[in-house]
Amino acid sequence: MSGRIQAELKQTKPVSSLEEEAYLNVQRTSNTLNQGIAELLRSHDLTQAQYNVLRILRGAGEGGLNASEIAGRMISRDPDVTRLVDRLEKRGLVDRWRCSEDRRVVWTRISQAGLDLINPIDAPLNELHRRLLSHMSQEKLQTLIELLEEARDGA
């Protein structure tokens, strides 16, 4: 490691490649940025995965989505979306019903209680995003977005 990450991780052994150093930086940055978001959501009794599902369902509208569609739209993959949705349903934050054409398919939509819970989070979350990243210029943010998209394309 030649950059700051080596000091932050208190590592004396160098990494084997520039790619590994970049990966460690992405992971460390993700963790750092997520800490504030996790705290904000915790104050609303939500995990990041639960909030992500509720936002996805809010965007889907009245028609809702099935579990595989929810899973495909999640920021961080969750291996058991069904169990995650079960917990949200027990709290009254989502409604579920079976498809009339195919009883194996279960549709899920956000309930009014779910909307009442997440809508007030929008403004503080947007402010948190600004606070976390506003020290970077618009050009640097755009470059960062493009670089991260390119990194995902290679994965």
Rank of each mutant, 00 (worst) to 15 (best):
E89K: 09
V106E: 05
D95A: 01
V106A: 05
R96D: 01
R83L: 07
L115T: 09
C99E: 12
A113F: 01
T82D: 04
Q138M: 08
H129A: 15
N126F: 14
V105K: 09
T108G: 01
R109N: 14
L93T: 00
D122C: 13
R91E: 03
K140I: 15
A123D: 14
L88K: 04
D86V: 07
K90N: 05
G114K: 06
D116M: 05
P124Y: 08
G114D: 07
L88F: 02
S100Y: 05
C99D: 15
T108M: 08
K90R: 07
E101M: 09
V106S: 07
E139H: 14
C99G: 10
V94P: 03
L125M: 13
R103N: 00
N126P: 10
W107L: 08
T108K: 04
V105L: 05
L125W: 12
Q142L: 14
L132G: 08
A113E: 07
Q138T: 12
K90D: 06
H135V: 06
Q138C: 10
I110A: 08
R87V: 07
I110E: 07
D86Y: 09
H129R: 15
L84I: 10
D116I: 01
Q112P: 06
N126E: 14
V85P: 04
L115C: 11
S137Q: 13
T108N: 08
K140G: 13
Q112M: 06
L128H: 09
W107M: 10
S137T: 15
R96W: 01
R131W: 05
H129S: 14
L93Y: 04
V106Y: 03
R109S: 14
D122W: 12
M136R: 15
L128P: 09
K140C: 13
I121D: 00
E127F: 10
S100Q: 12
R130Y: 12
R109G: 07
P124K: 06
G92T: 10
Q112S: 06
R109W: 11
I118P: 05
L93R: 01
R91W: 00
G92A: 03
L141K: 13
S134D: 11
L115S: 11
T82P: 01
S100W: 04
L141Y: 08
V106F: 02
L141G: 10
D122M: 13
R83D: 09
D95N: 05
H129K: 14
T108Q: 06
C99T: 08
D102G: 03
N126A: 15
Q112R: 06
I121F: 03
E101G: 05
R83V: 08
R96P: 01
S137A: 14
D122T: 15
E139R: 15
R104W: 02
R91C: 00
V81R: 06
L117K: 05
S100R: 12
E139C: 11
R98I: 01
L132C: 06
E139I: 13
V81I: 11
W97L: 00
H135R: 09
R104M: 05
L133P: 04
L84C: 07
L115Q: 13
H129C: 14
